[in-house]
Design a protein around this nucleic acid. Structure first.
Lengths: 219, 219, 219, 219
DNA sequence: CATGAATGAGCGTTCATTCAT
DNA sequence: GATGAATGAACGCTCATTCAT
């Protein structure tokens, strides 16, 4: 299904050799960058600010990256990695509505916690250099694929009835609802708690605004 | 409901007096800017490029705006205005599922046609200065409000059953699906035609993935 | 003979449109740059210093060039132009030893006056970008060609006997002696006046250290 | 004549005590530096690159020098040393035209072989710090002095007739012809083989372009 | 002695904005 | 009103040099 791996992981060169040090410094760097990108966006953030926020000098920053865009890539990559790690366990629950609901809940909760990171990722992705962009885009599709398989699994198990296309659209739908919470939380929060939001969007996904079951009717 | 007007229209000062000239020049400016912002983003576009694309000199550009951000505001404002103009007629069809469906179709089709403008608006909005940002955000809520009232209308007419909150979420759902088409068209197009997409999201909104009526069962 | 024009004039783009202003500013720029390059070399001279020496801001400097290397090219180009203009009239005197002697005198005197420029040109030429380098090198060959034709002319007129190759080497000899005066003036001056140097190298060229005519013997 | 030693050998401080180790490391360093300087010039070569090319770390490099300019000095010094060693034996042949011709041949052949080194030396010398520069310049004069004495020797032996001044100029002439081969080989090679070049410049030095002896007339 | 991570002054270059014409 | 030359603060990035290990 996803056997074709078109793009390879985009490597960010470092002139430092100690791998564990690279890990550590990049951690600092990513943490600082996320904060700044969130506050002022990628373009308004300077490399000196990133270095300062990370706790080292501009010279040191450039020991671990080659261009400012590398920082953005590192940030995006890290986020996908974390989201993937959090969501991966759900794959086991394939084939049940319950599993699907859990996955959605977990996904939205993840976004809620990593709000800064998500906002950065969705807003700044386009500033990535070509090669990095296609790698990141691929990872995004992977995430959609995860939900797509869950929906297809439910369909196969007979819990719902979905064509392949519908499963694909449904998956995108979920992903987009996540973006929605990341982007529009500022106003949605005035109306909904996180829990309410999750419940309602799950309901809407499953039953739509017209076909909702009577209270208590179905699970 | 929306009687509280918190922010006023953000005025962009011009040193030119002739109002019709201002109108004309800003038209040129916005047209050029949209094209450039779409291609390279707000930050990568220079004021010189905007002036050139608009067909006049950098000096003249600054006769009609005060800062580069003014151009962005002008662009966002224009887009909302146009979207609003296109969608406003729908308000009359309140209270029918058919009207709702038409509205969704028109909305998505508008986005499809004004793809450049929407992309710019959603990607660059955050670069707006505070005052302009809140004005633009308010206009965005207005748009959601339009759909919210349509959903509420359907509910009142008994076509569907929705609480106030559910109507609000449904409205956001529609808005976000629009963004989805603007943002993800590059991949969705591989799977769906515009018409298919509209149909499926409408279905989705109304009946969800689980509650879909049997073929032919309901309209 | 020189009918094959392989490389075209390397154009330096300016964002300023007024041609006469470009001329004027580049004059200032070249004058300042020559002075600085002479004192500290191309690499040790900063663009800010060039701008300051030229009498305008760094921003203005970059209105008239695109890169620092453009300044170097402009300097080299200007020098060749001036040398060529000074030497061109001599071409008429082809075919006489007297004309040749005049040409050599004029050439060395030019170098003596434009010492700074020549030193810069010979020392920094290699820092030119590829395209500019080949253009400048070609102009250098042109200059050698001028002397080559004069020597060939003398030979045809029967004043001296030279094969084509010998004429070519003789021409290079003259060019190199010029470089020598530019490079080694600091020490040669302790021993020779400019006039003495010119006389001796002319003698050297014509008669060598062994074949010198007895005093008064020949012209 | 050259009894006044104005400048002393410019010492390059090293924090390492072991003299033989210093020798070894500097050898590696010079070899690497010459290669790099030739390829990209002194200024475009980084200390890191020098260290890498030499086979040790940047830290180690700085155990054996104090500044980057030290490397340049070491390189220049080494080149003069080598040239001197090669040419010194010729001093014995003083007083004969044959010896002079041999010296010239050897000199040009040396330059041809050590092209890289010569180019570096002539191009980058000016980047030397003041103290080092005057030391190197003095060594250059020494080299000219070698040829000057040979020419004077020939004159004293009656083989040619030269005033002191003429001998000095002749010596400079030879030196400059060497530079010429180093600098202009790129074009001269199209016309002359090394041997031809040597023969012709020797001829020109001895007899000039006008006073050449008939074929076979003299030696 | 050897290493290489850390530093930060300084470089080339850009571009929003101004203002004299 | 329109122009475009001038400005300089600010940016991304480099690299000679240091010093703790």
């Amino acid at each position: 299904m996803t056997e074709k791996k078109t793009s390879v992981r985009h490597e960010v060169k470092s002139s430092v050799k100690d791998e564990s040090l690279i890990e550590k410094r990049r951690d600092q760097m990513i943490r600082g960058a996320v904060k700044l990108f969130r506050e002022k966006g990628f373009h308004r953030t300077t490399t000196r600010e990133i270095a300062k926020e990370a706790g080292f000098s501009i010279g040191t920053l450039y020991e671990y990256i080659r261009t400012k865009e590398d920082v953005l890539y590192l940030v995006c990559d890290r986020i996908y990695e974390e989201v993937h790690d959090r969501l991966a366990p759900l794959a086991e629950q394939q084939g049940t509505i319950k599993g699907l609901k859990n996955a959605i809940r977990l996904y939205i909760e993840t976004i809620d916690e990593m709000d800064d990171e998500f906002t950065v990722m969705y807003q700044e992705t386009k500033s990535l250099p070509k090669a990095a962009l296609s790698y990141v885009l691929e990872k995004e599709l992977e995430m959609a694929g995860l939900f797509e398989r869950m929906l297809a699994g439910c369909s196969e198990a007979g819990e719902i009835t979905l064509s392949e296309k519908e499963a694909r659209l449904g998956a995108h739908h979920i992903i987009v609802q996540g973006q929605m919470w990341a982007f529009r939380r500022w106003t949605l929060r005035k109306q909904f708690t996180l829990r309410e939001f999750i419940d309602m969007l799950t309901d809407q996904l499953l039953y739509g605004v017209a076909g909702r079951p009577q209270k208590g009717e179905v699970k």
